[in-house]
Design a protein around this nucleic acid. Structure first.
Length: 279
DNA sequence: CGATCTACCTGATGGC
DNA sequence: TGCCATCAGGTAGATC
């Protein structure tokens, strides 16, 4: 479900809503959500009594820093939601797996029908920079400032289809199935172009498209698809789906050239593109 | 190194 | 109505 823009919107919401709050109690009703633990106790006691001091994001992961130096890591998987609740009285949504209650009142709830999401508490490596479990992640396209020629170097070093490369979290962290297709359309490049065969201006277009599309995704508060599974911390839908150029628009006219958007299955995932605008 | 498949889950949808 | 197949924003691990 959530890719970088949705996670970034959530990060901003959490920053306003839960930073400075102290964790009073934690309830875990589904062990799979904290599958790195065998018991719920160690997870719960790693959180209770701690204050949240800040919220960061690495790719699609959220990091809530605690005042004891530890970090609560949250990944939303395909269907995870974080929702604010006023208190215990608000009815629990189905598939609510973790509830964090703050001493100041209010709750943070983790809801996740498909249970691909997870939460765990870990430490920051050394001088509060890296989390060991996330060390495999590549550069964050919104946080890391890379020049386009350095980006081009990295792209050319690899020998991969562009869609695969964009979705490779070890290369760039945060891009998934929706935004990879949108980025490639914006760049005018086909999903199956090889990364080491791009001309310099194509590399520059790709570089720009990554930044612009993700930035717009955040600006419009993420993409909520037909199932409306993605909502922000307060339950509100995003609107970037109304700006999609290709994703889930197969059979419809390309907004640039009016020809038909095509859907193909690549690596088990639906891929949408315009065979005329994307070369 | 890269590509491709599988597994992990639940729910919605569409064909028959 | 039921039943079955297919599909869905993700990641990790095995295999070739």
């Amino acid at each position: 479900m959530p890719e970088l823009p949705e996670v970034e919107v959530m990060r901003r919401d959490l920053e306003k809503e839960i930073v400075g709050k102290k964790i009073k109690t934690v309830e875990v009703s589904r062990m799979r959500t904290i599958r790195r633990y065998r018991q719920r106790k160690p997870f719960i006691s790693a959180l209770e009594g701690n204050k949240i001091t800040g919220i960061q994001r690495r790719g699609k992961y959220l990091l809530a820093k605690l005042d004891n130096g530890d970090v609560l890591v949250i990944h939303l998987g395909m269907s995870g939601q974080l929702r604010r609740a006023a208190g215990t009285k608000e009815p629990l949504a189905k598939h609510t797996h973790v509830v964090i209650t703050f001493t100041q009142g209010g709750q943070l709830r983790f809801i996740d029908p498909r249970t691909f999401g997870e939460m765990f508490v870990t430490q920051l490596d050394g001088i509060e920079t890296e989390v060991e479990e996330l060390a495999h992640l590549g550069m964050d396209p919104l946080e890391t400032v890379v020049s386009w020629d350095y980006f081009g170097e990295l792209v050319a070093q690899r020998q991969a289809k562009l869609k695969t490369l964009l979705m490779d979290q070890k290369f760039i962290a945060g891009i998934g199935n929706i935004y990879s297709d949108e980025i490639l359309h914006h760049a005018g490049l086909r999903w199956d172009r090889m990364s080491n065969e791009l001309r310099p201006e194509e590399i520059r277009r790709l570089y720009r498209a990554v930044g612009e599309v993700l930035h717009d995704g955040v600006k419009y508060r993420g993409s909520s698809l037909a199932d409306e599974q993605y909502v922000d911390l307060f339950g509100k839908l995003g609107s970037f789906q109304t700006h999609h150029q290709v994703y889930a628009r197969d059979g419809q006219a390309c907004l640039r050239c009016r020809r038909e958007i095509v859907r193909e299955k690549v690596g088990g995932r639906s891929t949408f593109f315009c065979p005329f605008c994307q070369v």
